[in-house]
Nucleic acid binder design. Structure first.
Length: 844
DNA sequence: CGCCCGCATGGCT
DNA sequence: GAGCCATGCGGGC
């Protein structure tokens, strides 16, 4: 494996810049607003550098960034720092242990280190890349399974990881290495990868990364770093759109980014899914029997690792190892059951675990957060021309961790060791019973109480409910509910939180003045609120310094964009809602409405979320304002303008917000009615029968239905199969106590505005839950419309605050004109989020 | 009879 | 409509 010596480390730019700095370690300052992250540099930051432990990226000036990209940053700035070691092969000095150069070397089995270039030369023999599961092993043909297994085991286990990235090396070679070296690599690939290399490369090219990679690779001086980063992150990091104007820079930076996906933040997923993973996955998959090339670039959000700093710390312990969150999964009942099989998300399994072509799979050594090692059998079952990956033998581990359904297991990798680490996150720190209580009581618009009651097993309760709401409310951890097939009706309630930045700072989604969806987040340090893109996922801790979206306000010293008044409007909206819901004072209600001017829907949504039960803690409201307010969400809640900023909505308003509300309402009614009708036809419930007898000969259109709302009594019974039923109104307005009482639904009258009509249909037809929800929605709608009336007519209508509070409001109060105005738009009635709408245009 | 393994099923995305 | 995945279930031990 002799190969040309690695290209001499050059530090052109950096070297130059270097002269202006001393060799002290890079700054730890992350707060300087516009200054280069390098404390020794006084330039203005303009580019991103390495990934920080926090998951963010060091923002550097051009010079420093260039130095970093060229792999000479340490040489430039850390020259006098300790920790320099020499490559065992070429003697190149590497600043080991430095976060900046952490990707530039690999540990050797025999001790010592090797720069990436040298490691590349010998990786075939010694490779045990941290990412082996992704690249290296993934590339092994089945015939080399044993080898693969061995390597993987070693990797997954506690063995030292001599060296980390085969794949990237391959890429590097392919693109930029000398022909000789390249030839070797190719030989290797032929030998071990069985021709996958080309495919992988092609895949990369297809992913649009090749260009960048190629260019970067061609930059000999930076090859090391690039390789390192590439290895680490699968080379491609579309994470930042390569198409960005500064693609070159970004691409370069990204490629160098130690970890595009900051483990702790949403960035994390960004990188994980868009960058590393995608490429990694792509590498792995291409050329493999597996046909799952499609969509491999993205793992479902629910599998995105959302480690908290604490979790990461727990995993890494006191070591200097870098934790690379891979994915996580909420345990299902089956997973946590005694069967001992943990179903692995296919994409995750294929992306992060060694490739297996035989159902028997291979043993996988996993270390838990306490350092204890477990060996699971990683295998798969053929399933519908696909595979279902499972980890067998997890029961002991799960029991050891005292996990149960609803809890989350996390998989990460310790680097550079390459150990596969399995962590966990309890659904709640509370006891199962407490959890249930919390869930059912806090409800956040959702109650799992029903199930809890039905199922004496805390376990089952958790399982069925999917998770505990408590943490969500407390904003402590991420709880992404995985639907429970057992209780479909309940499922979505939790599911709504799947992509919410549950670990993140509470944010408030809104629409700015120009109609752009944004979210407001409060700085941990200065408590100032900063505006970020709506599609931004935030870590649990967020500070101004992390505000890469708005460099102008990336420092706590910068004034807040929101005025106190605006803030007051924005933040307390939830409180106001809560208050308004409970208040008996009509006048106050009006005031609230005025305060919420332009936010009627906000109130509506919140009302619905709050349901008839307990109000949300205001603190969590901001975050869970809309359970499904995932970034980019265009739902009614998210698209509405910030408090005080939105225009008033007249009854005849046909803005997106209003239309969405109307449409949503209408769809909800229709769908529910349809479902219920069908059920009713079957069950012959007396109540339904009565309704049936009242049904009209001709089904009114949705519009008609709405028009008829004023006459709840006229609502027709369910006409089985007929989507257009007037019954919806009656149903929505049906506040018949009997129904409420007879309800067996876990919702218990609580409502989730985020319900999807189709899902709502899943509600037990015989229960009132549906009716309750509809009613609640109607109430909320009414409230909204009422507010609009107030706003548009100076409260000429009966301002009775009771309407806001009323749980039995009927649709008849809804303005016909208003409702009619919605009839022409049905496009999104199936959009998942409540009141969601595809149109992202700001309301008016 | 109970457990385990593997596949099938069906809800859901 | 395809694929994913939680769970069911039958057969073997």
């Amino acid at each position: 494996m002799s190969s040309p010596p690695p290209p001499p480390p050059t530090s052109t730019t950096a070297t130059t810049a270097n002269n202006n700095y001393n060799a002290s370690c890079s700054s730890s300052s992350t707060v300087l607003s516009r200054k280069c992250f390098n404390s020794d540099c006084t330039d203005v930051k303009s580019r991103k550098g390495w990934r920080l432990r926090s998951g963010d990226f060091a923002e550097l000036c051009d010079r420093c960034a260039s130095a970093y990209e060229e792999g000479s940053f340490c040489e430039a700035f850390h020259l006098r720092a300790s920790g320099w070691r020499c490559c065992e092969s070429c003697g190149k000095r590497v600043h080991c242990g430095c976060i900046v150069s952490i990707q530039a070397f690999t540990l050797l089995d025999a001790g010592g280190i090797a720069c990436l270039a040298c490691a590349r030369k010998s990786f075939v023999l010694t490779s045990n890349p941290a990412w082996s599961p992704l690249f290296y092993h993934a590339s092994f043909p089945e015939r080399l399974k044993d080898l693969s297994v061995k390597s993987w085991s070693q990797l997954a286990g506690s063995g030292p990881v001599p060296w980390r990235q085969a794949p990237s090396l391959i890429l590097g070679e392919t693109f930029s290495a000398p022909s000789l070296e390249k030839r070797k690599v190719e030989d290797f690939s032929e030998k071990f990868i069985n021709g996958n290399l080309r495919i992988r490369l092609r895949d990369i090219v297809e992913n649009g990364n090749a260009g960048i990679i190629g260019e970067e690779q061609s930059q000999t001086p930076s090859s090391l770093m690039e390789d390192a980063s590439a290895q680490q992150f699968g080379i491609s990091t579309p994470y930042k759109s390569l198409s960005e104007s500064n693609s070159q820079i970004e691409g370069s930076v990204n490629a160098l980014q130690p970890a595009p996906p900051p483990p702790f933040t949403k960035h994390f997923h960004g990188s994980l899914h868009n960058g590393v993973d995608s490429s990694v996955d792509g590498h792995i998959r291409n050329g493999k029997p597996r046909t799952d090339a499609r969509g491999r670039s993205q793992l479902l959000p629910r599998y995105w690792p959302r480690f908290t700093d604490g979790e990461l710390h727990q995993i890494s312990g006191n070591s200097n190892s870098v934790i690379k969150p891979l994915f996580e999964k909420m345990l299902s009942a089956s997973d946590a059951g005694r069967i001992g099989r943990l179903v692995l998300p296919k994409k995750c399994a294929e992306a992060y675990f060694p490739p297996i072509s035989q159902p028997e799979g291979l043993p996988l050594r996993v270390q838990d957060s306490t350092g204890k090692e477990w060996i699971f059998q990683f295998r798969f079952w053929p399933n519908n021309n696909s595979r279902m990956y499972v980890l067998e033998g997890v029961t002991p581990c799960i029991q050891n961790m005292q996990l149960q359904a609803g809890d989350t297991v996390t998989f990460s990798r310790l680097e550079p060791e390459g150990k596969l680490v399995m962590g966990f996150r309890k659904a709640s720190s509370a006891t199962p019973s407490d959890q249930d209580n919390e869930t059912s009581q806090t409800g956040n618009g959702v109650s799992t109480k029903g199930d809890a009651e039905l199922d004496p097993s805390p376990w089952s309760k958790v399982d069925k409910s999917g998770y505990i709401a408590k943490e969500v409310l407390e904003g402590k951890s991420s709880i992404r509910k995985r639907k429970s097939s057992t209780l479909g009706s309940k499922r979505f309630e939790f599911e709504e939180y799947e992509d919410a930045p549950v670990l993140g700072k509470p944010t408030i989604f809104a629409t700015d003045n120009v109609g752009q969806k944004v979210q407001w987040v409060q700085c941990e340090d200065c408590l100032k609120w900063r505006k970020l893109p709506a599609n931004t996922l935030l870590p649990s801790k967020w500070a101004c310094s992390s505000n890469t979206w708005d460099p102008e306000r990336s420092s706590c010293s910068v004034a807040q964009e929101l005025t106190a008044e605006q803030l007051e409007y924005l933040i307390p909206s939830c409180k106001l809602v809560v208050a308004s819901k409970r208040s008996k004072d009509a006048r106050k209600e009006i005031d609230r409405v005025e305060a919420l001017e332009g936010e009627g829907l906000d109130t509506l949504a919140n009302l619905a979320i709050l349901g008839e039960g307990e109000a949300f803690p205001a603190s969590s409201q901001a975050t869970t304002k809309h359970p499904r307010h995932r970034p980019g969400c265009s739902c009614i809640v998210c698209i509405q303008p910030p408090s005080g900023k939105g225009p008033k909505h007249k009854q005849t308003c046909t803005c997106n917000v209003c239309q969405t509300v109307k449409r949503r309402f209408k769809t909800l009614m229709m769908k529910r009615e349809k479902k219920q009708s069908e059920k009713e036809a079957e069950t012959k419930q007396s109540e339904k029968e009565a309704e049936t007898t009242r049904k009209k000969p001709q089904e009114p259109s949705a519009e008609k239905l709405l028009d008829d709302e004023p006459s709840p009594s006229s609502n027709t019974g369910s006409e089985s199969g007929s989507p257009n039923k007037k019954k919806t109104v009656s149903e929505g307005s049906d506040d018949d106590p009997k129904r409420m009482k007879s309800s067996t639904s876990p919702f218990k009258g609580q409502i989730d505005l985020n319900i999807q009509p189709e899902r709502e249909d899943e509600l037990s037809p015989g229960s009132d839950s549906g009716g309750g929800m509809v009613r609640m929605l109607q109430d909320a709608t009414e409230t909204y419309l009422r507010m609009q009336r107030f706003l548009s007519s100076d409260g000429d209508n009966n301002p009775s605050g009771n309407h806001m509070l009323s749980s039995g409001g009927t649709g008849e109060k809804i303005s016909d004109a208003t409702m009619r105005g919605s009839s022409h738009q049905d496009a999104d009635n199936d959009h998942p989020p409540a009141f969601s709408m595809n149109a992202s245009a700001p309301a008016t």
